[in-house]
């Protein structure tokens, strides 16, 4: 049997290629363009090779914000994932409370980033905010606009408040999909509650947790609006995460070359971590 060759079907792909080109490829290539050249405006460019990349990779400022970023993402993952699983485990599986819980959980996810930032800013202000005044009333000196530790804790708490729900909802969906027979078999086998969690629930949650961790990693690694509104990156530079730093360089100092190089390094770092994590999680999956 001979195969008929007809390449006309490719025309159907053209609209998608066009769309992707406009929203991803062209902007990305513009950044690549800036990252290897120097410009003084007026569309005049000078070739600089990998100079900006070297500069960024050697810059202490970049190292510092990169480390801050890693610490922040590590902290929120370490809090949100176990907390999310815990909340999902304690949510009712049936009855009228299911929808109440789900709506309550979904509420924080519906609030825009800048509103969350503004809310928490006011909430945590030591002189007028409920949280800030409350903590100070307990006799603890708390002022997130001046103390780095307080600023960090407030930022982390805000992110936990905003995004733990996502992990909860994903984990809850995963838990609901475990057939009753598993729990019944575990009872018959005399498994303890811990064994049920370790041997049944956690393995069955693996896929949804992989997705949850990936989403939370990407989102938190690229976080901008909430800390910007809450602390503005301060006090000093203590909560200046990568994207805040990037915006300062690109739009504040107008150093387009280094900013473009930093964007690409940033992008590759996110991509690399996601790829490694996904490969590790899925290496034992069958077919």
């Amino acid at each position: 049997m001979t195969k008929t060759t007809n390449q006309k079907a490719w025309y159907f792909v053209v609209p998608v290629v066009g769309l992707v080109a406009f929203n991803a490829l062209i902007p990305l290539m513009t950044v690549v363009n800036y990252s290897v050249q120097e410009t003084f405006g007026d569309n005049v460019f000078f070739w600089e090779g990998v100079k900006w990349f070297e500069e960024v990779l050697k810059s202490e400022r970049f190292h510092a914000s990169f480390l801050r970023q890693l610490a922040f993402t590590g902290m929120i993952l370490a809090i949100e994932v176990p907390l999310g699983i815990g909340v999902a485990l304690s949510m009712p599986r049936k009855g009228p409370w299911v929808s109440v819980c789900l709506v309550l959980m979904a509420l924080p996810l519906l609030i825009p980033w800048n509103v969350v930032g503004a809310m928490w800013n006011i909430f945590a202000l030591p002189d007028i905010g409920l949280l800030g005044r409350g903590i100070n009333a307990l006799g603890i000196d708390y002022n997130f606009t001046q103390q780095p530790v307080a600023a960090w804790m407030t930022t982390v708490l805000m992110d936990v408040w905003h995004w733990t729900s996502l992990v909860v909802l994903l984990a809850y969906a995963g838990l609901c999909s475990i057939p009753d027979a598993y729990y019944q078999a575990a009872k018959i086998d005399g498994a303890s509650a811990w064994s049920v969690f370790r041997r049944i629930q956690l393995p069955k949650l693996k896929r949804v947790l992989t997705i949850a961790i990936l989403l939370r990693f990407m989102d938190s690694f690229m976080i901008y609006t909430e800390p910007f509104v809450l602390t503005g990156g301060g006090p000093g530079n203590t909560t200046t995460f990568l994207s805040i730093d990037l915006v300062k360089i690109a739009l504040g100092q107008f150093d387009l070359g280094p900013a473009a190089a930093m964007s690409l390094i940033y992008f590759l770092a996110v991509l690399l971590v996601c790829w490694i994590f996904y490969t590790l999680m899925m290496r034992n999956e069958e077919q």
Partner: peptide
């Protein structure tokens, strides 16, 4: 409770501990 009844049950869909 089930645990103390010393019974065994095989379900419609096989239940194994995947990991």
């Amino acid at each position: 409770p089930t645990t103390d009844r010393h019974i065994a049950q095989v379900f419609q869909f096989p239940v194994v501990y995947d990991t």
